[in-house]
């Protein structure tokens, strides 16, 4: 299967290993992966700040880069949701874990990650793309990322007190509401630490970057890892 890979701008610049893991993982699972070199950003940073009218150029560029592909895969629930809501495409954009579960129907992964891992449910993937059930809704529970992580040998997912509370990153919210953003992040980190996580994983590097910033400031040895990095472990 031929898929196009869309890498969020900040992942491209700061977390290239997450993009590499996404690419290699898709290749391992038999996909022919195309990475359009002219790609930049989905436009969400501007839109969520109230400047949706300025994100038009980004969205047009996105369309030019990706319109020819049937599937566009992106290792971020947040950017995927923004494209889904704002860019008209012939094909379909999907967040990485939902693509693995729904399209590739992955049932087995020959990887091992013998650690206690806490899963951070990023809001846009969860409540926006519905890749997991939500604690607020009275509906059957499911989680695509959990389904995948359960295939990793040696990995044990920890229980959290609040299984789907926002980490407080929120785009420009992280600086415009610094006090609340940092407090939310600290509380999320505490929940993971209280339950003895060795790693915090998730589907959005932006949330993990925020949590990582807090962990490192605390001097904690707990690390963040994008779900693609774990699923692509050896």
């Amino acid at each position: 299967m031929r898929v196009a890979l869309f890498i969020p701008c900040y992942v491209n610049q700061f977390y290239p290993q997450v993009a590499v893991a996404s690419l290699e993982l898709l290749e391992k699972l038999g996909c022919e992966v195309v990475y359009p070199l002219e790609q930049t950003c989905c436009g969400q940073p501007m839109a969520n700040s109230g400047y949706q009218h300025l994100s038009k150029d980004c969205e047009t560029l996105f369309q030019e880069n990706f319109d020819q592909y049937e599937y566009i895969v992106c290792p971020s629930g947040s950017c995927t949701l923004h494209i889904k809501d704002h860019v008209e495409l012939k094909g379909k954009i999907m967040e990485l874990s939902e693509f693995l579960v729904d399209v590739l129907k992955v049932e087995k992964l020959n990887v091992s990650f013998p650690h206690k891992v806490g899963l951070h449910q990023s809001c846009h993937g969860q409540r926006g793309l519905k890749i997991s059930s939500m604690s607020e809704l009275m509906s059957p529970s499911f989680s695509k990322p959990e389904h995948l992580l359960n295939m990793v040998s040696g990995l044990s997912l920890i229980e959290l007190e609040k299984k789907d509370e926002c980490c407080g990153f929120g785009g420009t919210f992280c600086v415009s509401e610094e006090a609340i953003s940092a407090k939310m992040g600290k509380d999320r980190v505490k929940d993971h630490l209280d339950h003895e996580a060795e790693f915090i994983t998730g589907n959005d590097m932006s949330c993990l970057m925020h949590l990582e910033g807090i962990l490192r400031r605390k001097g904690s040895s707990v690390k963040v890892k994008h779900i693609a990095e774990i699923l692509n472990a050896s």
Binding site: Q17, G185, G213
Partner: peptide
């Protein structure tokens, strides 16, 4: 104020 910044890698993914 309350968070470290990400470390900047050698190369971008591109």
């Amino acid at each position: 104020k309350q968070r470290e910044m990400p470390e900047v890698p050698q190369d971008s993914f591109t």
